[in-house]
Design a protein around this nucleic acid. Structure first.
Lengths: 237, 237
DNA sequence: GTCAAAGTCTGGTCTATACCAGTTTGGCTT
DNA sequence: AAGCCAAACTGGTATAGACCAGACTTTGAC
């Protein structure tokens, strides 16, 4: 326990959250109610809430309220398991919405895959849910030569990587990952129903096949408290 | 550009930061000065600063001021390269301080390595700097049977993994990583000279040798804006 | 019964001000 | 010249209040 009032408030709320009752329905009372109950101002109370948000214990839905965060999803970005599979494997309910598809050049994808900046990609933009909470906004750019009529498929139900393997016989051999914390931009924030600037985690992947030909580039934007990256490795130098 | 004033302020400051002049010496003017210059209050100004902090563009040193953040350090936690090596390879200046060593049981280490909870480890606590900014607080727990007189070495200058290999002939074969965003606890915050609750990234590693015997468990706490995780992978299922 | 409008709830943004607590500085003492 | 101490400076915490904007609920007209 610390000296600053908002830190003691944070500790207090943390206890309530971990207690048996927690808050009904996983929803916290309104800020004004909590501020009054703890005899402080909304400003100070919000400092405590922001603290807990940073710890990943609670989150907010834009102008709707504060909610208790569920356990983080374990996610291994080095594996090809489909989102639906590993979410279900953890006893959670996955859902995917395709927001947009087109075929256009995209500079970051081209650069990451070592292609000329003006070459086109099949682009899929989608939003993914765990237990009805939107936790991930992502874009995929696939090299058309590798998967010509990709955009006719059903990207929501099927694993994209499963499709690439079964329909075009692609083996995903080499991949390059970049991963860092970010503040969600307006677009991603809107898609995930959170305030712009909310803390997020960005995962970018460039994938090549067994002949080292570029296959795909993708960019994921996760809510920071929604996941725990796990990786299992054998025998690497 | 957005509607809220603090967001326009954020955009404005972001431009200044990316501009040719930036701020002299990488230090921002005092909050009171900036608030006056932009004709607003410290509260609103701090909202804008917090936004930029979340983006990793600026950071603060506890009660000293705001500073322009340097480029993120590329870091591959799946490789055994020593901190000193890869920091220097990126043209930066590494430094390490050993804060504490002892030999004690540690439950999380025992659990991660699959050992009885009461078994002891050689424990090293240290703090690491990039260009004189403390960016990482870490603890290592090494199984004594693997490296009996470990604590006599010089952990600051040498790579721990190099030591394990050269002095005890260990091959680090299997490793298990967990990685997630966190709010820095009081201890880590104090060691890194930031306010408690500052956004961080936690990396935990359990490492086993070729015979699958447990070797080491470690826990790293990074400032969130100090690093970019990069991983290169070949041929994984 | 449907649906749209009005009202009420929520968090989001903002002003103005005050005092606290470490850090740094600079001048004074020795 | 070295060391110490006080003042000045920094961000950190807190109060009290106001209004805005989107989400939700209720009501009432059709």
């Amino acid at each position: 326990m610390s000296d600053a009032y908002y830190l003691r408030l944070t500790d207090h709320l943390r206890e309530l959250l971990s207690g048996p009752e927690a808050f009904e329905e996983g929803r916290l009372p309104a800020e004004r109610t909590l501020a009054e109950r703890f005899r402080t101002t909304r400003v100070t109370l919000r400092q405590a809430l922001a603290q807990l948000e940073g710890e990943g214990l609670i989150h907010r839905s834009n102008r709707r309220g504060w909610f208790v965060s569920p356990a983080r999803l374990d996610y291994d970005p080095t594996r090809d398991a489909g989102f639906n599979d590993y979410v279900r494997a953890q006893g959670r309910r996955p859902r995917t919405e395709v927001l947009h598809t087109d075929t256009r050049p995209h500079r970051p994808a081209a650069e990451a895959l070592g292609l000329p900046v003006d070459c086109s990609f099949h682009h899929i933009r989608r939003r993914r849910f765990v237990d009805d909470r939107a936790v991930l906004a992502e874009s995929l750019w696939v090299v058309p030569a590798r998967a010509p009529d990709l955009l006719q498929g059903d990207f929501a139900a099927n694993s994209l990587w499963g499709e690439l393997r079964s329909r075009w016989g692609l083996t995903l051999a080499h991949r390059s990952l970049r991963l860092y914390s970010e503040a969600l931009a307006e677009r991603e924030a809107a898609e995930l129903g959170v305030a712009p600037g909310t803390a997020g985690l960005s995962v970018r992947r460039a994938i090549f096949d067994a002949q080292r030909r570029p296959v795909e580039y993708d960019e994921e934007h996760w809510l920071h408290d929604a996941l725990c990256i796990t990786v299992e490795l054998e025998n690497k130098a």
